[in-house]
Design a protein around this nucleic acid. Structure first.
Lengths: 243, 243
DNA sequence: GACGGTAGGTGTACGGTGTACACCTGTCAA
DNA sequence: TTGACAGGTGTACACCGTACACCTACCGTC
């Protein structure tokens, strides 16, 4: 898995090879498997060898994120601003779904690499080309938040029914827990009931993330459209206290 | 800082004391200072002593998040749904701003503690009491995403001008970099120019997070209001493929 | 052809992390 | 008096990122 020739004379390391290997490793074994030691082993090399090509672990993660962003597809130029933003963001989503670790990796970043800036500039440019002022574009991108990377923080990541604990609970214990849950969190229960069409045995399945994502995206794009047509300008903005 | 008496006979540990100490430590020295060893030292105790009161580090972070959520204030009951949601969320924001580590801690959580569920139930209940269906409430809470915890992922966390590097660059180098930036990221530059009123020397100050937060929040609440008045129902929903 | 610089892989070591496990000790009920 | 047990201790292990010295194979120059 590491060498190329039958013995010795392996293909030399390079920044690119390190990063692609890191992505492959994260795809296969999760982001936690991407340690300098694990990555080195994957490449058939000693950990410190990596430092001749990358400055440290942070830069590895940065590079992995850049590779994912490189998979984002540009929109069809025939699309209007709305379709173009939608296309860009849904393409980002597909890429992030292909690499389940990417969400956490992107969230943990604090640097903005040229690749990241390039993507943000492209999204901003799509708004501006669609007739939005730079100011309004700015606020809308804040409103979109992480959605421009193709994901929303998962509020309902786990099933609402808390089935923690070691051994399988008895039927009575499960019923008692369900009753307590219904008493303590009646609204969450109502939501779960509605989401599963009343079939509470399906509560554990979680929600349709794709639908939720597009719902939120369209809600924001609708709001954007309305502001643009209403001629929103920064005059709506309260004066900002100088700091 | 650890004991209570002049010598010996310290106040005994407890889960609550451990968690409050962890919050204080994170407030003072950042979330990275909250290691089992550092926390134990803060309490004048050996690291393994903590494990008699909490099951591990994950549970410590969970408990810290619960304490922050405990600081959220319930809304004035006289408020309508919109004011109540706004009040709740802005109160959450104030609490999170008081504890700068809370954002990262909340984002890293995967469990939903009873306290977390209770807060989510309260927000959902506010929507439902305002006339929203559980279904629409569900989608809106996804749309709000992490905003219900009082923060948005910071897209523009750093200044757009990349002033990395070791020694202070010459004026010429700075101008060259600015020129390159303007060429590569024209739209980000336009946004930064607009945000600072043309005063590019203020670009490094970042943006007014509070304004951006409220802008996005109100954009979403406006959208929510419109959907409610239009009688949105789950009929708009495409059939969901069974998994 | 000898030589010196250098790019790139190696080995060792340090200080940090979370936590499993055995141990000890003081308190309190029986 | 005894014995259980809650709670604090000490040691140890496996892992992490990475600083630093080293070694080795190549390559252009004289």
């Amino acid at each position: 898995m590491a060498d190329s020739g039958p013995e010795g004379r392996r293909t030399p390391l390079s920044r690119d090879r390190v990063l692609r290997s890191a992505v492959a490793l994260a795809d296969a074994s999760g982001i936690d498997a991407v340690s300098m030691r694990g990555l080195a082993q994957e490449l058939g090399v000693v950990p410190m060898a990596l430092y001749k090509h990358v400055s440290g672990k942070e830069q590895v993660i940065d590079g992995m994120v850049d590779l994912v962003i490189g998979e984002f597809e540009p929109p069809d130029p025939a699309l209007d601003w709305r379709g173009a933003v939608r296309s860009r963001v849904l393409s980002a989503r597909r890429a992030v779904l292909r690499h389940p670790w990417a969400r956490q990796a992107i969230e943990s970043r604090t640097h903005r690499s040229p690749t990241v800036l390039g993507y943000m500039d492209a999204v901003a440019g799509t708004f501006i080309a669609g007739g939005f002022s730079p100011d309004l574009t700015h606020h809308l991108m804040h409103a979109l938040g992480n959605r421009i990377w193709g994901f929303t923080p998962e509020l309902f990541a786990e099933a609402p029914d808390p089935d923690r604990g070691a051994d399988p609970p008895t039927v009575e214990a499960q019923q008692a827990m369900a009753r307590e849950f219904a008493e303590r969190y009646p609204h969450i229960l109502a939501i779960a009931t509605a989401a599963t069409g009343g079939d509470l045995s399906r509560v554990g399945q979680g929600c349709d993330e794709q639908f939720e994502f597009e719902f939120a995206l369209d809600l924001l794009l609708d709001g954007a459209d309305r502001l643009r047509r209403d001629g929103w300008s920064s005059l709506h903005r309260r004066p900002r206290p100088d700091r």
